[in-house]
Every structure is written in structure tokens, then in C-alpha cells.
């Protein structure tokens, strides 16, 4: 287009509006039998272009930094209507590059502030079913990584994390983490960890309320998994959760159980060094507990000589002062029983 017919530069709001129109078209027509393939292809190409442009406005284009005013305009227009829902719903219908661009746009919007309000958070609170869609994405290899990345950005909002924690979806994560595709499993695992460590107070509340089923699943599905990486990441996460001050009540409950102790003692003897070391960081909490229940004391006393022999030869690969100090402490506790 040249000279007279040169179009007026579009405002960020224009781009959002056009994107929305195209999304509506694609959502209705893509893949349906009556659609005109040529027209569809054109609309798809145009949609891709618009989403790429949204990305450029939000992130800058490599040479120019993003402009705050433009980002604000874009965000306002985006959440004025159901653009986020349309964008998420259309992910399976667009091509790979557009999926990646959409993911980045959604991720960025979670952080955009308009008059110190986060519109994305407010929108999601009113449209929680979108989170159900994103989570069930782990069941579809085609969209899993895109929806997974979007989801992790959405649970930055405390209210959204709470919704996911309190939903039935939490149970599904125990399956998702063990999906045979490593890329998807590790993505699910990252989301799971984020959910259980990011918003301290919310997590503490969740763990207290759901203690029984959650740790039953955690012990039987993850800590006892035959998959090396599942087990390794689970024991690390368990340590992180229990050692967090905000979860101290949960920790006390966990280390008061002989069943938990038995699982941890078995992990101490795992063939993998990493798992042994991480288990030790949980095991030490059982030993350090000042109010050990009789059943826990019993097990420790019964195995005292074996435990002491084990710790005598238990070392980290790299020198670790903290580890050695902890170990001394544990040996002292056990010897004194």
C-alpha cells in the first residue's frame, strides 16, 4: 500500500479489537465443514499477524522498549471484553508460532497494571472456568506446554492460586507429574511446586485443611514412585514445604507419624545420592522433634545402631558444613534416646 491508500497507524486498542474479531471468526469457523478454506487461511494469517503485533507492543521489538501508555491501552481494551477467553480457546486452532505468541501475550498481561489494578487477576476471578481449561491442557500433548506456561503465570495471583489449590484439580496433578513425556511432566511438576510454595499463607491453610488426602497421595504416589525424577523432585519439594516456617503446624503433624518416618527411612537408603541427601533434610526433622510420639521413638530406638552406622558413612559429595552440623545433631539426638 502506497501513498493515498496508506492506512492510518492503528492504536493498540485497534489491534486488540481486530484480534478479537478474528478470534471470534476462527472460534466459530475453524475446522467446520462449511468454511471456505481460502478465506479461513487468510483470516488465520491475519490473526497470527495481530497476535504478533500484540506481543511486540507488550515486549518491545528488540530495538524499541515497550511503551507504558501503549501497554495500558492494550490491557484495558483486552479485558473490556472476553478477549482472554477467546485467545485461550483458540490455542488448539492456531499454528505453533501463534500459540507461542499467544502464550507470551497472556503471560505478560498477568503483570500489567492499570491504575495500580491488575485487570487480569480481576478478570480471572470472574472467569475461573478458564483455569479448568488451562489445567486440563496437561491431558493434551498438543497444547500442554502452552496452557502450562499460561497457567503458571495466572497462579501468580494469590486468589487464583487459592482457587486451583481448593479445586479437585489438585488431585490430578499427581497424575500429570508422572506423564511419560518428560517435557510435559516437568512442566506440570513446576506448576505443582509453584502452587505449593508461592503464596505462603494460602499454602499453609491448604495443607492444614487437606492434610490427610494430600500427604497420603504424596507419600504413596510421589515419594514411592518408581520414576527417579518424580521421586527426587517430590522429596525436595517435601523438604521445602516442611522447612518453611509458615508450615510449621503441618510439619509437626508430619514428623509425628511413624508411617511417614518409615517412608523417609527407606528413602535414606535409596540408591541415588541426591535422594538420600534430600531425605536426610526431612529425616532430621523427625529426630529433632522435641515431642516425639512413642511410636516414632520406638522405631528410632529399634534401629538406633543401624542408623548410627549409616550416618557414620553418610557424606555429601561436596563439603557442606551445614550438612555435617545437622548430621552431628541428629546423631546426638538418636544416641540420647
Amino acid at each position: 500500500m502506497k501513498g493515498l491508500f496508506k492506512s492510518k497507524p492503528r492504536t493498540p486498542a485497534d489491534v486488540v479489537r481486530q484480534t478479537r474479531e478474528l478470534l471470534i471468526y476462527v472460534d466459530l469457523h475453524a475446522g467446520t465443514s462449511g468454511a471456505d478454506p481460502k478465506r479461513e487461511e487468510e483470516k488465520m494469517a491475519e490473526l497470527s499477524k495481530n497476535i504478533r503485533e500484540l506481543k511486540c507492543i507488550l515486549y518491545g521489538n528488540g530495538e524499541h522498549e515497550p511503551v507504558t501508555e501503549a501497554c495500558v491501552q492494550l490491557t484495558q481494551e483486552f479485558f473490556r471484553e472476553n478477549t482472554l477467553r477467546l485467545l485461550i480457546m483458540c490455542v488448539p486452532k492456531v499454528n505453533l508460532e501463534t500459540r507461542k505468541d499467544s502464550t507470551q501475550v497472556v503471560a505478560n498481561l498477568q503483570r500489567q497494571q492499570v491504575n495500580s489494578r491488575i485487570l487480569a487477576s480481576e478478570y480471572l476471578e470472574a472467569n475461573k472456568d478458564l483455569l479448568d481449561t488451562l489445567i486440563s491442557g496437561y491431558e493434551d500433548t498438543e497444547v500442554a506446554l502452552h496452557y502450562g506456561a499460561m497457567l503458571r503465570e495466572c497462579i501468580r495471583h494469590q486468589s487464583i492460586a487459592r482457587y486451583v489449590l481448593e479445586s479437585d484439580h489438585m488431585k490430578k496433578f499427581f497424575d500429570y507429574i508422572q506423564i511419560p513425556n518428560f517435557d510435559i511432566a516437568s512442566d506440570a511438576s513446576a506448576t505443582f511446586k509453584e502452587l505449593l510454595t508461592r503464596h505462603k499463607a494460602t499454602v499453609a491453610e491448604f495443607l492444614s485443611k487437606n492434610y490427610d488426602w494430600f500427604f497420603a497421595e504424596f507419600n504413596s504416589r510421589l515419594l514411592s514412585s518408581s520414576n527417579y525424577i518424580t521421586k527426587r523432585q517430590a522429596i525436595k519439594l517435601l523438604g521445602d514445604m516442611l522447612l518453611d516456617r509458615s508450615n510449621s503446624a503441618v510439619m509437626m503433624r508430619y514428623v509425628g507419624s511413624k508411617d511417614n518416618l518409615m517412608i523417609l527411612m527407606n528413602l535414606l537408603r535409596d540408591s541415588s545420592k541426591n535422594i538420600q541427601i534430600e531425605s536426610f533434610h526431612v529425616f532430621k526433622l523427625f529426630a529433632a522433634n522435641k515431642n516425639k510420639p512413642a511410636e516414632v521413638v520406638n522405631i528410632l530406638v529399634t534401629n538406633r545402631s543401624k542408623l548410627l552406622r549409616f550416618f557414620a558413612g553418610f557424606k555429601t559429595d561436596k563439603e557442606d558444613e551445614q550438612f555435617e552440623a545437622d548430621k552431628e545433631q541428629v546423631i546426638k539426638e538418636i544416641s540420647a534416646l
Partner: peptide, 18 residues
Amino acid sequence: NLALRSEADVNNASEEVK
């Protein structure tokens, strides 16, 4: 071999694969 890798390295490997 993931056993030779630290937690951060395992995370890097996941990112690489993705």
C-alpha cells in the same frame, strides 16, 4: 544423566527440552 545434575541443572534441562 540427571543424577549428576543439580536441581537447577535439571530445571535447565527441562527448559532446553521444552
